[in-house]
Design a protein around this nucleic acid. Sequence first.
DNA 1: CTGAATCCTGTAAGATACTG
DNA 2: CAGTATCTTACAGGATTCAG
Lengths: 112, 112
Amino acid sequence: MQDPCQAREVLGIVGDKWALLIVRMLKDGPRRFTELKRSIDGISQRMLTVTLRDLERDGILTRTVRNVMPPHVSYELTTMGRTLREATAPLLDWSIEHLPHIDAARAAYDNR
Amino acid sequence: MQDPCQAREVLGIVGDKWALLIVRMLKDGPRRFTELKRSIDGISQRMLTVTLRDLERDGILTRTVRNVMPPHVSYELTTMGRTLREATAPLLDWSIEHLPHIDAARAAYDNR
DNA sequence: CTGAATCCTGTAAGATACTG
DNA sequence: CAGTATCTTACAGGATTCAG
């Protein structure tokens, strides 16, 4: 982690508004488009499509189309995607533990 | 990490364009404003100020003003800030290891 | 040196409607 | 069902100037 430029490229993925939420939804196996749309609260159809494309491009997940009617498309983490998911776990643990503190800190700060 | 809403609040910090880069620069102790400005390539004065304020508000770092002329202000991670920094370490390790793969995946994807 | 205050712009992204 | 296309808007964030 010496090179700031590298750090910045990851942030492009990690810092994405929806990317980690999608990765998180895929941790237990493949999911379909509509399934993801339902389970990620507030995401628009457009942003789901766009973010899935980006993650596919980055090799984080795969997109599999079954050519039937109606269409059936499922998304699944690649090996790299799974390691990413594991690498973000400490961060999520951290959030669970510290979010109350953050909220408290904000409240204290705003009371001035 | 069951609650998506929590995940989303952390992403507000982690996903910030500059926040983690600042946290990273503070890992070895307090730094001054101009020092940070120099070492974080491409950050504007405005964004440094704004991001530092946000991180102070969140209780991630402290701002210490020494009242001399010229002014002397230094920023330092709080205990919580240091734990955040530690929680992001796996992610940075991950990036070092996988960025080449990501670049390759992108190149492959774009060649179609 | 360390900001605050404006101004200005590009882009992210929501809403909506259409399609194989 | 799983998208694409278009329009529109809000806001992030850069450049610049001023100030204690």
